[in-house]
Structure formats: C-alpha cells, structure tokens
Amino acid sequence: MNPLNGVLLVDKPVGMTSHDVVARARRILGTKGIGHAGTLDPLASGLLLLLIGEGTKVSDYLLNGDKTYELNCKLGVATDSMDITGEVLREQPVTSSLEEIKAAVAKLQGTLTLKVPLHSAVKVDGKKLYEYAHKGQTPEPNIIPDREMTFYDVQLIETTMASASPSGSTNVIVRMSCSKGSFIRAWANNLGEDLGCGGTVEGLRRVASNPFTVANA
C-alpha cells in the first residue's frame, strides 16, 4: 500500500489545539508523518492545513503564504493576552460613534508597527513570551518587541453597538488578510487603543490560507 502524501484541509472547531487535530489525524490515518502549516489557537476556528508525508516538503511555501481571517473584536475591554481568555486589564464604556469606529477600522491597513502579544512564541532574551506568561512572569514593557505587520483588504462586516446588544457590549466583525508574522490580536488591541476604550479578540476564524479556502475543507 502506498503511503499517504499531500495536504489535508481541516475546518478546526473552537476548543481544540492544532496539536489535538494533528494527533487525531495521526490516529485516524495510521501514520505519524503529519504536521501542520500555521497554528490556530484553541479560541480560533477555521482552516488548518495538515501536511502528510511528502506534503511536508511544501511547509515553507504554505507557512509563508498570506492568510485571511474573520475577527470578532469586543470593544471596551483590554486583556493581557489581547484575547478574551486573558486577564482583564481594564473595562470602560465605548463612547465612539459608528462612523468613528468605521474610520478607525479603515485606518488600520497596510504595514503597521504593533506590539507583539505577550502570549506568543516570539522570543525575548532567549525565552518565548508565552513562557513568561505561563510562569506568571511579565517582561518589562520596554523589552516586549514591536514588529512590522501587514494587513490588507480590511472590511468592516458588521457592528453591534452596546445600545442594541443584549449583553451591553460593542462588537465589530472584520474580515482581513495579513502576511506571515502578523498578529490579529495585536490589530484588535490597537483598534481599541485608537478608539480609547480597549479592544480584545472574542472570536476568530481563518477562512483562507493561500492558496486554499475553508470552503474546500
């Protein structure tokens, strides 16, 4: 029997880690030769590319490809992880109008210099940032690096203002594409900072990883 080779498109559900998906695929397909191209956090859902056998040879190509996401950003909250799973640093009412929110979203395109999330694999002093977080340590703010990140085709899909929301929160749904090394959490955090109220990722879905889309998963 010929070994399995290729790229398997998976629509990862919320709650599973990328490693969980790989482990399940290894059991189902009966092979250990499986990796993935681009981690998705447990909070996120959507397209995860599994590389099987000879498929691992295209890993660099797929990892370097641009990706497209649909972001649910909750305004009025800032957390240490820049997503809803983190410790809340501050909460305050959203006073921006819909037009001000639209303008702030439209401005956050192109190559931006943003602060890297604390809960990330970026290394500082030889240690990954998430290792500091897991040990309850926080590096000095001035040593958490900034990074150039590129976002494009940023589209505001939907806005739920606090006055119309049963939970009293303001959420924006934004679709965007980004280059390798760009953090959607950093984008959401920066949107909140620009609006003066804080912002954090409440939901995230990867809908494309060039050249594949989640519709084909």
Results as ranks from 00 to 15, higher is better:
Pro145Ala: 06
Ser177His: 09
Ser179Tyr: 03
Asn171Pro: 00
Thr150His: 10
Ala164Trp: 02
Ile144Asn: 11
Ser165Cys: 00
Val174Glu: 01
Asp153Ile: 14
Val154Glu: 12
Ala164Ser: 05
Ser179Val: 09
Thr159Ser: 06
Phe151Ala: 06
Ala164Lys: 09
Met149Val: 07
Ile144Thr: 05
Ile144Gln: 04
Arg175Asp: 01
Asp146Val: 13
Ile173Phe: 04
Pro166Ser: 06
Ser167Leu: 10
Pro166Cys: 00
Ala164Arg: 01
Ile173Gln: 11
Met161Ser: 10
Thr159Lys: 08
Ile143Gly: 09
Ile173Pro: 02
Ser165Lys: 03
Ile173Gly: 05
Val172Asp: 01
Glu148Val: 13
Cys178Pro: 14
Ser169Tyr: 12
Thr160Ser: 14
Met161Gly: 02
Leu156Glu: 05
Glu148Asp: 15
Ser179Asn: 10
Ser167Lys: 05
Pro145Ile: 06
Ile144Arg: 01
Ser165Thr: 02
Asn142Pro: 03
Glu140Ala: 14
Thr150Gly: 07
Gly168Ser: 05
Met176Leu: 14
Asp153Lys: 15
Ser165Leu: 01
Tyr152Ala: 09
Met161Cys: 03
Leu156Ile: 10
Ile144Ala: 09
Ser169Pro: 02
Pro166Phe: 07
Ser177Thr: 12
Val174Ala: 05
Val174Arg: 03
Arg147Thr: 12
Ser169Phe: 14
Ile157Leu: 15
Thr159Met: 08
Thr170His: 11
Glu158Ser: 15
Ala164Val: 06
Pro166Asp: 03
Ile173Arg: 10
Ala162Trp: 01
Phe151His: 09
Glu140Pro: 03
Arg147Leu: 12
Met161Ile: 04
Cys178Thr: 11
Arg147Asn: 09
Thr159Cys: 14
Ser167Trp: 03
Glu158Arg: 15
Asp153Gln: 13
Phe151Asn: 08
Ala164Met: 04
Pro166Trp: 04
Asn171Tyr: 00
Phe151Arg: 10
Gly168Lys: 05
Ile157Phe: 01
Ser177Val: 02
Arg175Ile: 02
Met161Ala: 02
Glu158Met: 14
Thr170Asn: 12
Phe151Asp: 10
Thr150Gln: 08
Thr170Glu: 03
Glu140Gly: 07
Gly168Arg: 08
Glu148Tyr: 11
Leu156Asp: 11
Ala162Gln: 10
Ile143Ser: 10
Thr170Trp: 09
Pro141Trp: 04
Glu140Ile: 02
Asn142Glu: 15
Gln155Asn: 13
Met149Gly: 07
Ser177Gly: 13
Arg175Cys: 06
Gly168His: 11
Asn171Asp: 07
Tyr152Ser: 08
Ser179Gly: 09
Ala162Gly: 06
Val174Tyr: 01
Met149His: 09
Glu140Gln: 09
Met149Glu: 05
